[in-house]
């Protein structure tokens, strides 16, 4: 029973994880784990030679492209989950992984785009251009990729300094738009009304709703501090 209380979120003292442990042990572990999906799919593709009877199914190119797209959106949602999870659990150290997770979202988006260009279209730029301009879900995907790239490019400490914390924070609010657009891209790409994209969109909605709730709470608190009379009146009404 004592062990159970020990694993309660609040019971984990953040200070217990030393910065060195995070830097030299946990981060490399997270980094290596994040590469596992790519390593697996690349190895399987090479080992089975993209044939129609291998472990990636009859259409390995479709499989690979979708697999990479799936991981791009998963890392995107993971990155969006850092703030809410940190807020709820008080695991402040999580913030140290947010940039890495976000960059992995971008990395998998790059792989997803590359698989589309190289495997699916094999550098047929006319077809690619037609797809980007005419296929709505691909238009959304491409715009989203550009937005995500702009965040990746400004993710370094140097860029934060150059932009200034305020402007940087404002720019990186784009991640909310990117999350929504990724869900939209997924939903549009699937035919009919399918469950998977709806689940991803639901998770995204919860993660964004947390921010809205936090924002409203903060505003209410600020309002109360400014005008204690009104706050008191409100409480009396209820």
């Amino acid at each position: 029973m004592t062990r159970e209380t020990a694993i309660l979120p609040q019971a984990i003292p953040t200070r217990a994880i030393k910065p060195q442990t995070i830097k030299y042990v946990v981060k490399p572990l997270v980094f290596a784990s994040a590469l596992m999906p790519l390593a697996w799919v690349a190895w399987t593709a090479v080992a089975s030679g993209l044939g129609p009877t291998g472990p990636l199914g009859a259409n390995p190119i479709e499989y690979i492209n979708r697999f990479l797209g799936d991981w791009a959106i998963r890392f995107l949602l993971l990155a969006l989950a850092v703030t809410p999870v940190r807020g709820i659990t008080s695991w402040t150290f999580l913030i140290r992984f947010r940039r890495m997770i976000g960059l992995f979202a971008f990395f998998y988006a790059c792989m997803h785009l590359s698989s589309y260009i190289v495997l699916d279209q094999f550098f047929d730029w006319t077809e690619i251009w037609k797809d980007i301009t005419k296929r709505n879900y691909i238009t959304v995907g491409m715009v989203n990729f550009v937005l995500l790239a702009s965040l990746a490019a400004t993710s370094t400490n140097g860029m934060i300094k150059r932009l200034g914390a305020k402007r940087w924070t404002k720019l990186h609010k784009l991640i909310y738009v990117i999350g929504i657009a990724a869900c939209l891209h997924f939903y549009m790409m699937r035919k009919g009304v399918q469950l998977e994209p709806i689940i991803y969109a639901g998770i995204c909605a919860v993660l964004l709703a947390y921010r809205v709730a936090a924002h409203l709470k903060k505003k209410a608190r600020a309002g109360r501090a400014e005008n204690p009379d009104r706050a008191g009146a409100g409480a009396a009404h209820r």
Binding site: G51, P52, A58, F122, K130
Partner: peptide, 19 residues
Amino acid sequence: VNHPRWSQAKERRIGDFFK
């Protein structure tokens, strides 16, 4: 005829790499 979701100009025969 352009389809809003897939270009119909080409196709991948299952088992082929090139369309």
